[in-house]
């Protein structure tokens, strides 16, 4: 890699940071103009006096009477200089809410992502090797069925199957609230992970396998695979060592972006299975007119894009000597 690569990545990072700033600011303006947190208070029973509503809103930097530019300035300077994303409309710290939810999302996505990446790539490669055979045709049909099915349908079908089997697996929430003791909380938590993980796995693995199948087919007819076999590698060895290694390169950026952006993108899965992660928050904060939460999610998502971009550059450079020089 060397210094050239380092400098290249640094320049990229600077570009990305500017983009994050612009994207987050834009979202903040948009959210503040269209979301009306005051409605949450006006609809309370009994309705508090208007002046105290404005006082509360002002203390949370949400008062529509304060000019938008001024609210924005408060918001952005708090983030930049204090790392403080403000308060939710009901007075909680956005920072701690976000911290909790990132942890939840991470737990939910970690296993699913690892398993789907490995199996998606393997499944795609295997299908490519067996192009036009019945197994490949069946895989293709199944993949398209899965990709065409909306996530809620998949999730609810899994729940239905589970119920029909007499609920061998519990699935609502992160763990059984009745569980006593660390150990039983952990096992309950593991059990509750199963169905959402399967849901995410089915969607991601299918998507990845389609990408991988495509790039693999391009590589299978290549001259260098023939050379590898002419050296004395079996077809299997040649495909695994030379073919897969080359065919996985163009899939990497797609993988990285998909995985990273799933942090805020697993909305349906989180909602249906009652996991209070970032995806759920994205929807909830909008329906609750929670401007500061929306702003925080915007910053978070933009940072994710930044990370995905840098990560895929790094992975690409690590895998392909042609871009390094």
């Amino acid at each position: 890699m060397g210094r050239g690569m380092g400098r290249f990545l640094l320049r990229r990072a600077v570009n990305y940071v500017i983009l994050v700033f612009i994207a987050a600011s834009f979202t903040y303006f948009l959210a503040s103009s269209y979301l009306e947190p005051i409605v949450n208070f006006l609809s309370k029973h009994p309705q508090p006096p208007l002046s105290s509503i404005h006082n509360i809103l002002r203390s949370r930097n949400l008062d529509p009477n304060t000019p938008l530019v001024q609210r924005y300035w408060t918001w952005i300077t708090n983030i930049l200089f204090h790392g403080n994303f403000g308060q939710t409309f009901d007075g909680n710290s956005v920072n701690s809410e976000m911290g909790r939810r990132i942890f939840v999302s991470t737990e939910l996505l970690l296993v699913a992502t690892l398993v789907s990446t490995v199996s998606g790539v393997a499944w795609g490669a295997w299908n490519a090797l067996r192009q036009y055979r019945p197994s490949d045709r069946i895989s293709t049909v199944v993949s398209y069925l899965l990709l065409a099915t909306p996530t809620p349908v998949i999730a609810i079908s899994l729940e239905t199957v589970d119920q029909w089997m007499g609920v061998p697996v519990q699935y609502t929430g992160m763990y059984d609230p009745g569980a006593q003791g660390t150990w039983s909380v952990i096992t309950s938590n593991m059990q509750h992970l199963i169905l959402p993980t399967i849901t995410l796995f089915l969607i991601q693995a299918t998507l990845f396998s389609r990408y991988q199948r495509g790039t693999m087919l391009d590589v299978l007819g290549s001259d260098f695979l023939r050379t590898a076999r002419a050296k004395g590698l079996t077809r299997r060895q040649a495909v695994l060592k030379h073919g897969l290694r080359t065919a996985v390169i163009p899939v990497m950026p797609l993988l990285v972006y998909n995985i990273v952006l799933l942090f805020t993108g697993a909305t349906f899965t989180e909602k249906i299975f009652g996991w209070h992660g970032m995806g759920e928050w994205l929807v909830d904060s909008i329906t609750q007119n929670d401007v500061n939460a929306v702003g925080a999610i915007a910053v978070f998502t933009a940072v994710l894009v930044l990370i995905a971009g840098l990560l895929s550059d790094l992975v690409y450079a690590a895998l392909d000597p042609r871009v390094r020089s």
């Binding site: 001259d223 260098f224 002419a230 050296k231 590698l233 079996t234 077809r235 080359t246």
Partner: peptide, 29 residues
Amino acid sequence: SDGEMSKIRGKEMGMVFQDPLSALTPVFS
């Protein structure tokens, strides 16, 4: 079988192909 042939290819018989541009795996030295 492919397994048996692979013991012969590259050992008893070497092969040189036409297009040197594509005959080598791009990602390995």
